[in-house]
Design a protein around this nucleic acid. Structure first.
Lengths: 130, 130
DNA sequence: GTGGGTGCAAACCGTTTGCACACCA
DNA sequence: TGGTGTGCAAACGGTTTGCACCCAC
């Protein structure tokens, strides 16, 4: 079989948004099409899609992972205030990756560059600041 | 007061090692000096030290955080096989940070560059490969 | 029928937290 | 003695998993 409407729907949603939703957000969204889908299924399919290399997992360090259907090399900006993740054009430079790989430490499967700060919106609504 | 022997011991251990231990590993180590210390205290002090900027937290995405007393700008290599974290000389380049900050997204408080792969040792003992 | 995918709920595990107690100024 | 830090254990929250069921082949 190796196919499921639910998985399709999850990937479709991920490809359609520029946000980098969490499993929970994805769950709530996909539930509009598949009201009986469960969080477990969402997690199972996200893990599967990540293993297949069709999507990427973004770990910000705040304990909840975000997912991104854009698997091209790019970096992310994480707002520790509103917990959103945004794309950045910036990518680890070729020299950096080469330099890392030539360190002889092991294989390099991914290089992720994550910037953390407080985003513009949160700076404006300084209510939200901690 | 703002001082505690336990916290001192945690930081001392972190500064003495080139590994990037997890809270649990730190706990087991500090317990040699303070047998009655609890995991909760270790976590509380780690969080405090991170907030004070005296140490850094490294989130690899595998669900357990690692800690590093070296707060200078440098990157890390994470082996998804043995779950160890190693230092890399590589750092996000000035241009990258400038380019990110000029994107006007928000403040930039940290830039972390994490490489993921399978380390040399794990490649050799290919028993461990998944 | 059979096997992969699902829904459900319980388990899991790293981390946080409430609370009573201990310790030092 | 007052206030900060601790030990303990329970709670928390995101994620995983066991199991019965169901649906497409």
């Amino acid at each position: 079989m190796n196919y499921s409407r639910q998985r399709e729907s999850i990937k479709e949603y991920l490809m359609s948004t520029r946000e980098h939703p969490t499993a929970e957000v994805i769950y709530n969204h996909v539930r509009e099409s598949y009201p009986k889908i469960s969080l477990g299924t969402v997690y199972r399919n996200l893990t599967l899609l990540v293993d297949l290399g069709e999507i990427k997992k973004i770990s910000t360090g705040d304990g909840t992972d975000h997912f991104d259907a854009d698997t091209s090399a790019h970096s992310h900006y994480y707002c520790r205030c509103c917990h959103s993740v945004m794309d950045l054009e910036v990518t680890p430079s070729v020299e950096q990756i080469l330099s890392a790989s030539s360190a002889g430490i092991g294989t390099i499967e991914s290089a992720s560059l994550l910037f953390t700060g407080v985003c513009k919106n949160c700076v404006l609504d300084n209510d939200n600041l901690d």
